[in-house]
Design a protein around this nucleic acid. Sequence first.
RNA 1: GGCCCCGUCGUCUAGCGGCCCAGGACGCUGCCCUCUCAAGGCAGUAACGCCGGUUCAAAUCCGGUCGGGGCUACCA
Length: 489
Amino acid sequence: MRARFAPSPTGYLHVGGARTALYNYLAVRATGGEFILRSDDTDTERSSGEFQNDILDGMRWLGLEWDEGIEKGGPHSPYRQSERLARYQEVARSLLDLGKAYLCFATAAELDEMRDVAKAEGRPPGYDGRYRDYDSEQARKRLDGGEDAVIRLKVPRPGETVFEDLVRGEVRFNHDHVEDFIILRSNQTPTYHLASSVDDVDFGITHVIRGEDLLSSTPKHILIGEALEAAPIAYAHLSLLMGPDGKKLSKRHGDTSLRAYREAGYLSEAMTNYLALLGWSFGEDSDIFTLEEAVARFSLDAVQPNAAIFDNDKLEWMNGVYIRAMSDDEFADRVAPLITAEYGELNELQHVRLRMILPHVKERAKLLNEVPGQVGFLMTDDIDYDRGSWDKVMTAPEAKMAVEDGLERLSNLDRWDAESIEGELRAMLEHLQLNGRKGLQPIRVAISGSTISPPLFESMEALGQAETVVRTSRALDLLLESGANLGDS
RNA sequence: GGCCCCGUCGUCUAGCGGCCCAGGACGCUGCCCUCUCAAGGCAGUAACGCCGGUUCAAAUCCGGUCGGGGCUACCA
């Protein structure tokens, strides 16, 4: 099997494109063969190097390694359509010589009129074939005279194109609805249909796996293949990805670029895992699996033909599963750049604190980039008290007692580890006849600034005794002087 | 409008004529655990769009209908 992912670099790689790439990859690796990455950049107006790089980055990030193609090279280099223009012109001309295509001089105005008339008469809209049987001598003459012309494929009429789509079964198109489409524009550049089909043939592609938006164009591609007398290609059209509102996934649903997810703290493992599930099922035993495991079970004919809605909630849950599955060291490594980006280069104290708290943060994180915020109270000794948190717990009558007694005990503790701290604070609860919620929340706010933090005792251990005492005592001062109402810190 | 594709819980899906008064996962709800938040455990919620037909038997096959989506460029 030889399959290709052929995006046009006219935008960032989005999640839908990533899924198409993934399914191509899975199909190839599952059956053996080559996965090819090609750039369909015939639209020079809209294509850009930035987008090209984004696609390459995205593919690498996801771990979808290709065997031939851009940057990698291979027996069919180059894999960029913009570098193969001569080839497409050659094919178009030979089709012309063979009588399988013809020159057309219809102007834009004529084309518009055709469409209007066809629509008005209720016929299929499209080119009416007026130059299909035009005298070739005459055509030559007009061309030499400097007139612009396009080359159109002479679609067999009457006729029908029928093919077996690997995910949808038999699909048929009557040629009444397939116009004599343009293969070479008047400026001598190929249309997508020509370039893509010629490449598929030239590169020995056996399976074209792509989005359903190209299903209607498939007869054109098959017709070009037939005109070239090439071996038939198998097609598999994947359903499109939808937004939560059931409409085609687009910018309207927020930033759907792969990059945006990467930057939001999603792991590539979670992304490929989730994407694989959009239209395919791993089996009833699990929804969590590696790329390799997916390869072992993947099969194109098990792919669902119906559209799938991209569900961020499930992706996020899955990301959490992958984060928790990481080793503490790996988690620390992956999160380190994000923390330095937020707080600058870390000093020794910060390193020590992080090493202690990160394993506990790991258990709670759903997204990598929410971690810096969760460890913020350990990165600076100048913490702010969250107003809502303070008002919620510090105004309770037990708060002052708990903070006061806690401070006393913590100051005198001679062993500073989570276990000892817990023992001491539990003794405080016992002494004051308070339950954990009432007695410990004020202390949590005192040291972290918020009612939400990593586990209290471990947080204190990481903070260190000196700083814990400083913060607790500061909170107590505030309680005393403000009569329980937070001033302006 | 024309052509094409699609139609199982809110979402992703299992199901490929009897094992299904439909299974799993996310979400949601409740309970448990608990120092907060998560995580975890347990329980619950919820679907075969509709109408005909084939058959002893249909979520599974056929037709229609309704609904959704895609395409309809000298874009890809």
